[in-house]
């Protein structure tokens, strides 16, 4: 589904991604871990098409297409979803209006008729249950005044609404209380099927108790320096990164 080949990306003149190789297949769950500042969010942003970064080398294939040449919205319409580490507030734009436009734009891309107002409301009601999102939030402006936890729930609610092929969830677990973590993680698990794939970026093992990863990667200084199975996350939780990154320290 996703094939990243020797990806390098820079912001201004600073190289942040320095040769990433990663392959994600349908049905898989990958976890990406790594110390602060190692480039996890940058990787997610570059895949989503953020204009802040320049790809200087490498290629990315998504569902058989050259991802890097596609505009941001087409990547999304093809089924690439990014759960933001820091969801953005959009004053004056209600969640409902925002989602209606997003859902219908994605449907149009797939050649499907737009949802009627009633169908859309039904979908919204159904999907807000996935993460037990307070119905009142959908009539409020996007993320504006949402608590940290509500913002993260809202990301997964949007994921549920858009039903992506590949979801990259950037620290969706941070800022959630214990119950919210369980609800959100269970929600993500419910959305996972054999046809889609999930990449979770996280610092903590506890999320991975719910969303069981097939593969765990450690990103450090813009490279994946180690890949293991789910037990790697447990080991990292206990021992930290030192044993892995000592050789790489500059």
């Amino acid at each position: 589904m996703l094939k990243i080949n020797n990806l390098h990306a820079a912001v201004e003149d600073r190289e942040i991604l320095r040769g990433i190789d990663l392959e994600v297949r349908a049905g898989e769950v990958h976890a990406i871990m790594g110390p602060n500042g190692s480039g996890k969010s940058t990787l997610a942003s570059v895949l989503a098409g953020s204009e802040k970064y320049t790809v200087t080398e490498g290629s990315v294939e998504f569902l058989g297409r050259d991802l890097l040449t596609l505009p941001i919205e087409d990547r999304a319409r093809m089924g690439l979803f990014l759960g933001f580490q820091y969801p953005v507030e959009i004053p004056g734009v209600t969640m409902a209006n925002f989602m209606k436009l997003a859902v219908n734009e994605q449907r149009r891309f797939r050649g499907e008729a737009p949802l009627s107002a009633a169908e859309f409301l039904r979908l919204m009601r159904e999907k807000s249950k996935v993460v037990e999102l307070d119905a009142k939030l959908t009539s409020r402006a996007v993320n504006e005044g949402f608590s940290g936890g509500e913002k993260k729930k809202n990301e997964i609610f949007q994921m549920a609404m858009l039903d992506p092929k590949l979801a990259i969830l950037d620290e969706t677990d941070s800022g959630l209380d214990i119950d919210a973590l369980r609800i959100v993680a269970t929600g993500v698990t419910k959305l996972h099927t054999a046809e889609n794939a999930t990449v979770v970026i996280t610092h903590y093992q506890r999320l991975l108790d719910y969303i069981v990863p097939d593969v765990v990667h450690v990103l450090y200084q813009g490279r994946i320096i180690y890949t293991g199975d789910r037990t790697l996350a447990l080991k990292l939780e206990k021992e930290g990164y030192d044993w892995l990154i000592n050789d790489y320290k500059e």
Partner: peptide, 27 residues
């Protein structure tokens, strides 16, 4: 807000509509 436009485009809304949505929200 460029970040808001990126956020909206990431959900599948094209740039023109994202700008429009943000401006409409603003006013």
């Amino acid at each position: 807000d460029r970040d808001a436009i990126f956020y909206m485009r990431q959900r599948g809304i094209d740039e023109r509509q994202a700008r429009q949505l943000q401006l409409t929200g603003f006013v």
